[in-house]
Nucleic acid binder design. Structure first.
Lengths: 201, 201
DNA sequence: AGCTCGCCGTGACACCTGTCATCGAGCCAC
DNA sequence: GTGGCTCGATGACAGGTGTCACGGCGAGCT
């Protein structure tokens, strides 16, 4: 009997996944949480062996939760289950110590197998995503560029961003200009979108 | 036995919801589709009585799918099940003939009850969302404004948008300026975001 | 017929943005 | 220490953007 923890912020999806996995005779959902910062505690209390983690969660994202799990409970394995198959996410998830990466587009029958493989100590990674994350390479963005791009995601004017990070307007423009060059974009909004698509933010 | 159809573009979520609902002794999932434009055909072929529709789907969105269902198979009822509880979505869903509107944040135990109520001819609508959609009122945007805002969502420059819709640059700026005023924004990106949040796009 | 309203266009103006050249401070390698 | 690198900052300039005033067209209503 493999003991599972589910972490997803959408209660309906969480409950549905639990129903799906409980159908398998060798799997057992022993904990469910809706926030990333509750994962470690719930995993410890429930004695979960494999944790299924969504990426977008309040409190702590799934990748950071996987890192926390590796640090606090090294025996527990993590499987990222997310909507967005962004190359940078895969890379960061593996670096954070996750054992697997599955997108929510995969057929539901394959999920249980993925869980079993992860539990057995194998790596489970969507092959297309793995290839993409290899050719893309790691993020070329510097820390500031990444930070400013996240603020530029919603199209905020430069002045607003500059005020938020306590920088000069010209400096913000320069960093964003560099990011625009690195992403091959022509606008800071486009650059932000591209960076997000690749999982660089 | 209530016959159900599931429409959601994420196979994993679809399969999981099927597992959840099949646990109920009076519910039976008789069809699953991953595209909005396959809903009517699948509902006809399977004889589904209640259709659970996600909004974001390729081919046809869930609201338009509900409208198509009312037109083609008036006896079939629709229940919108979506991630985003946007006020405008609720209004449009009801106008399109949907019998219910549930967000994916709701506890999974309540889903089966919602399905039963819809099947019985009742309306099931998240009370908070219903209130919001009432105070917000309908979209104040004209057709062009709405169209141009969707193109402005990713922060495209005015010239690009103008070329895409075969309009003059000045005209595009004027329409977007009107939309900016109506949304209370100061930038076309912000206006687009606000309009999207309210379900006006 | 007048009237309103949505839609398309032009021109002008103030302001914002992206790019470039340039500078200084800190840090690491040789 | 010198050279090379990144980060932060400034200033200047061309081009993009939001706003306003104005005009014209067609559809629908009184």
């Amino acid at each position: 009997m493999i003991r599972l923890l589910l972490a997803d912020d959408q209660a309906l999806v969480r409950g549905a996944l639990a129903a799906l996995l409980d159908l398998e005779s060798d799997l057992e959902v022993v904990a469910q949480v809706g926030r990333g910062d509750e994962v470690v505690e719930a995993a410890r209390a429930s004695g979960a062996e494999v944790c299924l983690l969504d990426i977008e969660m309040p409190g702590l994202n799934g990748i950071d939760a996987a890192a926390a799990l590796r640090r606090e409970l090294p025996g527990t394995r993590s499987l990222i289950v997310t909507t967005f198959g962004r190359p940078g996410y895969v890379r960061r998830a593996i670096e954070a110590g996750a054992s697997g990466f599955v997108v929510k587009d995969t057929p539901s029958r394959q999920l249980a197998d993925a869980v079993r493989r992860v539990h057995a100590g194998l790596r489970v990674i969507d092959p297309d995503l793995a290839a993409e994350s290899l050719i893309d390479g790691p993020s070329p963005l510097t820390g500031r560029e990444r930070e400013l791009l996240t603020y530029a995601l919603d199209g905020s004017p430069v002045a607003t961003i500059a005020a938020r990070v306590h920088l000069s307007e010209g400096t913000v423009r320069n960093h964003l200009s560099a990011a625009i060059g690195k992403t091959g974009a022509t606008t800071r909004s486009e650059a932000a979108r591209i960076a997000q698509d690749r999982g660089w933010l």
